[in-house]
């Protein structure tokens, strides 16, 4: 248990800096992303084929109707349910909504969610052992691979995450009001390995 947790108000975000074990390199690095536009994309009734075609045409993305990430350098579609995706892109929320509206027209419902989540990247040598304490999903490389996504319950909080690469690094979308509680659970789980909480990213 990190000392800071006993003093930090439960409503505050874990401050940037080193938490838990202080010696050596941090076992886990947590990196918040503040400039990512996020939207939900929900296909209209029977429109998944149309949405899939449009995604290929407009973004060059082969959209999977599954808990997978389909992405290009520019935009990512994360499957969160049948005919349902979370879309992320490094641009202004209005710009992303405009692009998606152009691409999908009335074939899908679009909702801006850019402020709805804390987007957090987690990586580092102890990220696996730390996430085993939090995530009730098998993250073994033989089972969960880069491009896999899961919506699940972490420390009693519903959230979505996906694997970015095989270093491994993961991206978490944490409902904003749960972010302080999530970071407390993370600090607790990563205390033995040492957690580096990075400041908000500029990108």
């Amino acid at each position: 248990m990190s000392e800071i947790l006993s003093d930090l108000p439960v409503t505050d975000l874990l401050p940037p800096g080193r938490h838990g074990r202080a010696d050596g390199a941090p076992g886990v690095i947590a990196h918040p992303l503040s400039r990512l536009a996020v939207a939900t994309l929900v296909a209209c009734k029977g429109a998944v084929p149309r949405i899939t075609e449009a995604a290929l045409a407009a973004f060059g993305v082969a959209l999977a109707d599954a808990p997978k990430v389909s992405f290009t350098a520019d935009i990512a579609f994360i499957g969160t349910g049948p005919g349902r995706w979370l879309v992320t892109a490094s641009q202004a929320p209005e710009a992303l909504m405009a692009r998606l509206t152009d691409a999908f027209g009335d074939g899908a419902a679009l909702t801006d969610q850019s402020d709805a989540n804390l987007m957090l990247d987690l990586y580092g040598p102890a990220v696996g052992e730390t996430l085993a304490k939090l995530v009730p999903v098998d993250l073994d490389p033989s089972v969960f691979r880069p491009g896999d996504a899961a919506a699940t319950l972490v420390a009693l909080m519903p959230l979505t995450f996906w694997q970015l690469n095989d270093s491994p690094a993961y991206r978490f979308a944490i409902p904003r009001s749960f972010a302080p509680a999530f970071l407390r659970a993370l600090a607790s789980a990563a205390a033995s390995a040492g957690l580096e909480m990075a400041g908000p990213a500029r990108g």
Partner: peptide
Amino acid sequence: HHRGKDFRATRPTPTHDWAR
């Protein structure tokens, strides 16, 4: 981990810090 003030999540409102 779920004991004391971490027994369950506490959700602050967007204006929590201001209200405090």
